[in-house]
Write a protein that binds this DNA or RNA. Structure first.
Lengths: 341, 341
DNA sequence: TTGAAAGCGCTAACAC
DNA sequence: GTGTTAGCGCTTTCAA
């Protein structure tokens, strides 16, 4: 049995109240008493019982993270960095991080379980969708939330996101500057918000460049190696090959690059490639570096979201409820001018 | 405010006691009463407050998973599957999964926080070490635990593991059967239990085959792409190249394979390669499949460990406290007879 | 079969 | 400054 507050206060000849206050940093405790209390607490290795504290305070001191397995997030190393940043920052405030898995179909119910059971008092919503019932639900019940990504109506809640549209514009501009006109586009399901935004950027930049978007060159590539691989093959099999290809996510990008290599396509000469979020160098052919649209470290994203959520849970006003980070273009040797002809 | 037990019982004209019992499946409640209670609970969307229940029952209804960031687990897709299996199974028993990150140096303290604060009542210990103070600590304080991997003294606690030694013996036997005699070995830090076991298998199988282990061909390759890459380069630069190479983990294996490809080594002809746990096909050159020692799905491993831990926490005797799964050899075209000369 | 009462370990009004 | 008292919302003896 670990020492409890009663024992501790008995040993000190003080009331539990005083001890509690001393330990929780209230200022109506004499310096001397606090000193003694802290000393003794250390000596006995006293750790307040979390559950009791939670019940008394009416807070769960925990935040929930539901990861939709179907979405393939688990395979995304960037998302893992996000988790890392999240949990590190939460831990600093002595908050627990509850991880719940969910198939997309049961996801909402998972949130409900977490919320109405009082297991968490704040939530991180990952992989936002253009229309997102999870966020609607959380807002309706008034649970503090920070979304990792926006939705179609992004004003009512706090979020952290990268400027996906601007990022994709960068990608198109690179290709256009090199002289490409037939630009192919491989994208994740457009119900995902980031995919919709990136596609909007694609359309906008193409139009701005006076280029037509050839529907035959726009392919849904899913959100995994496998689907990306298959989609790239479909694209290659089409009547007119593009001279440039932009892939809107790294998972599918990896599969696509693989497919191109398999098909013997000379990346960067026959076909220029940019992958949003990039492809790790070490999975590629020697010396190859895929040009990318890069995002500032995912770890920081996690930290920042934790920070925002903590403030919300404390009821503090958030200086900026919306953080939109600008992606940057990261050069590579996977792009070049279109092949003659 | 969600409905609480008091409101629910008031609505029913029953005491909280009875309602609680009805809902928790006690048998001293009349069928009719139970019926009514369940009906009304559903109607009001009653969800018992977890914190209160926890305090009353003296259990946390949660298990902790501390992942050592330094170890590179986060990058290991297999470990993520394990988490998936774990959380799915725990959820079925209405248990929370607490995720805590930790640098190796602060790891023990993280466990202490979880335990003595009563945040969890059971723990999964990942990446066991040959001498593992975490397990010593947990046993000392009597917390139910299931280890993912063994230690040097594996008898006192429940664990789930693959037969690493046997797996590595398989790998060596394959190489030997093909006629290899100069077999190189790239391994993770030997303080990690799986690495030590696999190395033991390597030594044993080499000896059994009457082959000497050339110290120059045994290189520590770490537990990441980067270190594996570097280690393979070191090996290639050595005075006598091996004709076969075995890598004891997938992370480092990926980097090593990359390094070989970069160096223009004809894998499977100039140099045969087996990677423990395998390298995903889609990161390789077209048509290449790295021979591997494979382990039954990691998802099942997670599920099984959850199952074991749940039983332990319920105080049930565990039919088999130790689960040792046999790995299998998975063929590929990365191996062949040694090149002539 | 049901209810009253006590208590899980802590925090927070309120009084001294 | 410190102590008294009353909960937080549930479970669980113990009586009825």
């Amino acid at each position: 049995m670990p020492t409890d507050l009663k024992q501790l206060s008995a040993r000190l000849g003080l009331s539990a109240t005083t001890v509690s206050r001393a330990l929780n940093g209230y200022d109506d405790v004499s310096a001397k008493t606090r000193e003694r209390v802290e000393q003794m607490a250390r000596e006995l290795g006293y750790q307040p019982n979390r559950t009791a504290r939670r019940l008394a305070r009416g807070r769960a001191d925990a935040v929930g993270l539901v990861y939709p397995l179907d979405a393939g997030d688990l395979g995304d190393p960037r998302f893992l960095e996000v988790i890392e940043g999240l949990s590190d920052r939460l831990e600093a405030d002595d908050m627990d991080l509850l991880l719940a898995s969910a198939r997309e179909r049961t996801e909402l119910r998972t949130y409900q379980r977490l919320i109405s059971g009082g297991r968490v008092d704040g939530v991180i919503v990952a992989r936002t969708r253009v229309v997102d019932e999870r966020i609607d639900y959380l807002q309706r019940v008034g649970v503090p939330l920070v979304a990792y990504g926006r939705t179609a109506q992004p004003d009512g809640f706090a979020w952290f996101d990268f400027d996906n549209e601007a990022g994709m514009v960068l990608a198109v501009q690179q290709m256009v500057a090199l002289g490409h006109r037939r630009i192919g586009y491989l994208h994740a399901p457009l119900s995902l918000c980031f995919a919709a935004q990136r596609q909007a950027g694609f359309q906008r930049a193409m139009q701005a460049a006076g280029l037509a978007v050839d529907p035959a060159l726009v392919v849904e590539g899913g959100l995994s190696h496998r689907t990306g691989h298959a989609a790239a093959q479909r694209l290659l099999a089409g009547p007119t090959r593009p001279s440039a290809l932009i892939v809107d996510n790294n998972l599918c990008g990896m599969g696509a690059v693989r497919a191109l290599l398999d098909a013997g396509v000379a990346i960067g000469r026959e076909l220029s490639v940019i992958v949003y979020d990039g492809v790790p160098d070490d999975v590629l052919r020697a010396g190859m570096r895929i040009a990318a649209i890069g995002q500032p470290t995912a770890y920081r994203a996690g930290e920042t979201m934790a920070e925002m959520l903590l403030a919300l849970m404390r009821g503090e006003p958030l200086p900026d409820r919306h953080r939109l980070l600008q992606p940057v273009f990261e050069p590579g040797n996977s792009i070049g001018p279109p092949a003659a002809g």
